[in-house]
Simulated assay, not measured.
Amino acid sequence: MSRISVRGFAVASATAVTTVGAVVGVASGDPQSSGDNLEAAASDATLLADIPLGQMAQVQSLSLAEQAGAQAAAAESTAQKSAEEAARIQAAKTAGEKKAAAEAKAKKEREAKAAKERASRASGGGRDASSFPAKGSYTIAEVKSMARQMIPADQFQCFSNIVERESGWRYTAQNPSSGAYGLVQALPGSKMSSAGADWRTNPATQIKWGLKYMNSRYDSPCGAWSFWQANRWY
Score class of each variant (00 low, 15 high):
84 E>I: 03
83 A>F: 00
102 A>K: 07
146 M>Q: 10
225 W>T: 02
31 P>K: 13
77 S>K: 13
89 I>W: 05
143 V>K: 06
117 E>T: 14
192 M>D: 02
220 S>G: 03
166 E>W: 00
215 N>D: 15
231 N>W: 04
210 G>A: 13
4 I>F: 10
57 A>E: 13
161 N>G: 10
87 A>H: 06
232 R>N: 14
194 S>V: 12
116 K>E: 15
100 A>K: 15
86 A>F: 00
220 S>T: 09
5 S>L: 10
227 F>Q: 00
126 G>R: 13
14 A>C: 06
110 R>I: 04
176 P>H: 10
96 G>T: 07
65 A>I: 13
233 W>K: 11
168 G>Q: 04
211 L>D: 09
7 R>C: 03
197 A>P: 02
212 K>L: 09
128 D>Q: 12
74 A>P: 03
34 S>R: 06
212 K>T: 15
191 K>D: 13
195 A>D: 02
108 K>I: 00
7 R>W: 05
217 R>P: 04
62 L>D: 14
228 W>Q: 07
145 S>E: 13
62 L>N: 10
104 A>F: 02
188 P>I: 05
201 T>P: 01
98 K>E: 15
44 D>K: 10
40 A>R: 15
85 E>K: 14
15 T>G: 15
98 K>S: 15
150 M>G: 11
28 S>Y: 02
143 V>L: 03
233 W>R: 14
135 K>S: 09
121 R>V: 00
168 G>M: 04
197 A>W: 05
192 M>T: 01
112 A>I: 07
127 R>M: 12
52 P>R: 15
9 F>C: 03
103 E>K: 12
109 E>P: 02
82 S>L: 05
213 Y>S: 08
31 P>H: 12
63 S>D: 07
171 Y>P: 06
138 Y>A: 07
152 P>V: 09
188 P>Q: 06
101 A>M: 08
13 S>K: 12
34 S>A: 15
43 S>Y: 09
55 Q>H: 07
19 T>L: 12
87 A>S: 11
167 S>W: 01
231 N>M: 08
